[in-house]
Amino acid sequence: MENPVIDLKGLTKCYGSLKAVDDLNLKIEKGEIFGLLGPNGAGKTTTILMMLGLTEPTSGNALVCGIDATTHPILVKRKVGYMPDSIGFYESMTALENLIYTGKLNGIPENEAHQRALDLMDLVGLDDSANKRTSVFSRGMKQRLGLAEVLIKRPEVIILDEPTLGIDPAGVKEFLSLIRQLSREQGLTVLLSSHHLHQVQMVCDRVGIFAAGKMQMEGNIHELSRTLFDEDSYSVSVTVREPLPACWEYSDELRNIRDVRELHITENLVRIACASDVTPDIVRFFVAKGLDVMGVHKKEFGLDEIYQKYFDNHLIENNTNEKSRSIFKRYFNKK
């Protein structure tokens, strides 16, 4: 990565004693779609605010398009479109007027802003609501209008904070494919934060898992799944007709198949964890043993599992352990 569009160096933000963002380093290249994933309160929004110069970092730099966002926020804001998570519009104005206002604030002359606004409304599918007041807009419509507003200044980078919140499933698909199309065809760099894993998985080139102010890991989903589940990154479930006994006679034999790591038998469902894709071997094994295979389901680990596993392993356990311990203590002390 020679010329990253977004370059965060040792970014830290403290609120009193709480470290919201802790020594964050991140590079995002031009034309990339990067997904910032994390639970609530992980510091995603704070990081985004620092990239726009809306919050001053306690230490470190945020360079966007090579410009320091803390010292030259205006220059950065000319190139970056930002859609906040809870988006609001001037309710006494129509959607079109809202867009034109933003356009004019970016120095676009009135008539061109008007034209662009109409085109963008068409693009995001709000063309028939252009002259409605935004006070009657639903959450999803506002979100679409927000995307149009971000695009009206023709940014080089767009930052979307929880962009799919409140949009219906069909809308989400359309929304994400639009983002992807924009990125591919116009070379836009996109940073989107979310905790909706599936959506991020659908659209992002790379993801970063962000928790407790730190980037826990980053890479594309394939890499992530390999680092986290080097033991068992595939899981095959086989359903047979007759329930199997708990200590099944062939289980050792099954374990001996190459790359099979673990075996779980619950009645007529056999779950097999394996390091490489050995589904054909497994099916062949079952058939050879004369069992009636009703269904085979192969599952590659997605973000959901990665996410779950990651937070299970690292954070949530620690927190809950501490919490439950302290609750126990209090409880017992009372007695």
């Binding site: 000319r78 604030l105 970016n106 120095g107 676009i108 002359p109 061109e112 034209q115 662009r116 085109d119 963008l120 068409d122 693009l123 695009l151 023709r154 494919s177 639009l178 199309q181 924009l182 065809e185 116009q186």
Partner: peptide, 18 residues
Amino acid sequence: MKSLAVFSKGTSIKSKPT
């Protein structure tokens, strides 16, 4: 797929907003 012509249509020269 919708056309993204919106992005390239019109004057592309940005007048510097003062």
